[in-house]
Design a binder for these strands. Structure first.
Ligand SMILES: NC(=O)c1ccc[n+]([C@@H]2O[C@H](COP(=O)([O-])OP(=O)(O)OC[C@H]3O[C@@H](n4cnc5c(N)ncnc54)[C@H](O)[C@@H]3O)[C@@H](O)[C@H]2O)c1
Ligand SMILES: NC(=O)c1ccc[n+]([C@@H]2O[C@H](COP(=O)([O-])OP(=O)(O)OC[C@H]3O[C@@H](n4cnc5c(N)ncnc54)[C@H](O)[C@@H]3O)[C@@H](O)[C@H]2O)c1
Lengths: 245, 245
DNA sequence: AGTCGCTTGTGAAGGCGCGCACAAAGTTGC
DNA sequence: GCAACTTTGTGCGCGCCTTCACAAGCGACT
């Protein structure tokens, strides 16, 4: 299992051993920002520049990048094109990731119609629903098929990622279908905890929770403000702004 | 400032001093699940039950709940109704949180048309866009207004939370307008790091990043699978399934 | 060629969150 | 009323993540 750390030779295969989950999420952010820098014609970026642009601590950024190897040039910075290439390789974007979306309702329509996924290496290749009014229509040129076609279609099109945008009660059933069809990674928008075998990775996007976390902070600020109507705080805690995520 | 920990008396005001960010997010999940338990007629829930239903470690759950006070009954569990009440108070749901949504495109339509927000105490009371084809229409009975009306409308309707679903380039401008209008909490769907004053809280929902994190795991599994085509692993790492979030 | 300035990569420390394990406390049965 | 059982609340150790600070490395300028 644990091979000796045979660190970053430039080999074609992925030599990465283990990258902290939190870093992986940030690497994706760096990658997108690097794309913008490249469009603006930048050849190199320093960690400070990229850190400022992504709202991250520069040291953290360098450590994140160090997980994928030493591709920076001391005294200069990072060569944009090379770093993009390495990030794409690390994040698995050199292989096309075919995405299936189940539940073409309110949210599903928006996701299906969004061009940003395909443009970034995640072509949505299959859409599923149970509603007879939806099955048969096309969105962005993709046919909506019945849920019962999931096993067949997912295998045929090599789907690697499933997105679930059904109501909560239907999510587990849909999830089981996807897992049986060989999908090992699932992005879940339904407010449900999915039961999956250990080898399946689930990420959950829960907008209601996001709002409630914000509401909590509104309440806190409110209380704080009410308590210190007098004391004017000269306390710009965080100059840079974005803290987490 | 730091008063002695004058823990949870049953007073009407919020006596909470500081709750870890991660716990707050989970509290919201517990609250939703408790709602379902209540509908099923449950009077009390044990930490083990609720933990299983939300995919959380029971000890962690109890610790989370302990931040808001001691409302459990040893040997019995938690009284559902009382706990719901305390959670709502802690999360700031006893005050109505008026939400404004800017950018009524693909995603904005889905968000505006979603009943789940209003139903959970987050009525969307204002919609904004710049597209003349959108300004003037109604969605779910809410009028879409021009972005330039943000200052006026947000103040009039007491908006406390803003959601930004515009393209990335427009996000910062919209954000500035919201902040000037007194909005202190923002949920950002655009792939942009927003610059805000220290007292404003920003949360970012970045679907492209979610997909890329999944893609990374696909790649990892792929590599792992390719490396051990021989060794059949009898290693059900995580019986319970859901790991994080 | 040498020196100076700039930027990377990383060791180490600190903080935070997670989860075990157990004492405290309440309930049920007799 | 007492004992056995159930479940909460939490002290504590552990590991991950963040952040500081600095040595090592590279280029530019003279
Ligand atoms: N729309 C939003 O902005 C929003 C926000 C937060 C959360 N969500 C969550 O996202 C999910 C979808 O929301 P929505 O607004 O699109 O709901 P919706 O009711 O508009 O759409 C749900 C779709 O799922 C389909 N469906 C139902 N059962 C199915 C099944 N067994 N298999 C396949 N498809 C099935 C329905 O036909 C419908 O088209 C919900 O779980 C909701 O809680 C949505
Ligand atoms: N649709 C999705 O599924 C999805 C997924 C991931 C991320 N996103 C992000 O969400 C955002 C919105 O996506 P979308 O698909 O709805 O895009 P969209 O182009 O369909 O909608 C954007 C809307 O914003 C409006 N707009 C433009 N400039 C504005 C301004 N200055 N002020 C107010 N409104 C303005 C446009 O008129 C349009 O209605 C984008 O940043 C996108 O990257 C969307």
């Amino acid at each position: 299992m644990t091979k000796p750390p045979h660190a970053g030779s430039e080999g074609a295969s992925a030599p990465l051993r283990s990258i902290p989950e939190a870093s992986v999420a940030r690497l994706a952010v760096y990658l997108r920002k690097l794309g913008e820098f490249a469009e603006e014609g930048a050849d190199t970026v320093s960690s400070d520049e990229l850190a400022a642009a992504t709202g991250v601590n520069p040291a953290k950024l360098r450590k994140d990048l160090s997980y994928i190897g030493s591709y920076g040039i001391r005294g200069v910075g990072y060569e944009v094109a090379a770093l993009v290439h390495q990030l794409e390789r690390t994040l698995g974007l050199n292989h096309r990731q075919s995405v299936a979306l189940v539940g073409i309702g309110n949210l599903g329509h928006a996701l299906a119609g969004y061009g940003g996924f395909g443009g970034r290496g995640f072509p949505v290749t299959a859409l599923f629903d149970v509603d007879p009014d939806l099955v048969g229509i096309h969105i962005n040129g993709i046919l909506v098929e019945h849920v019962r076609a999931i096993p067949q279609v997912c295998v045929d099109r090599g789907v690697t990622i499933g997105m679930i945008a059904t109501p909560g009660q239907a999510a587990q059933g849909v999830c089981d279908l996807l897992v049986d069809a060989g999908v090992r990674c699932i992005l879940n928008f339904a407010p449900t905890v999915l039961q999956v075998p250990g080898e399946v990775e689930v990420r959950k996007v829960d907008l209601a929770v996001e709002l409630q976390v914000l509401a909590f902070h509104v309440a806190r600020k409110h209380v704080a403000a009410a308590e210190q109507t007098v004391a004017v705080n000269g306390h710009p805690v965080n100059g840079a702004g974005g803290l987490l995520s």
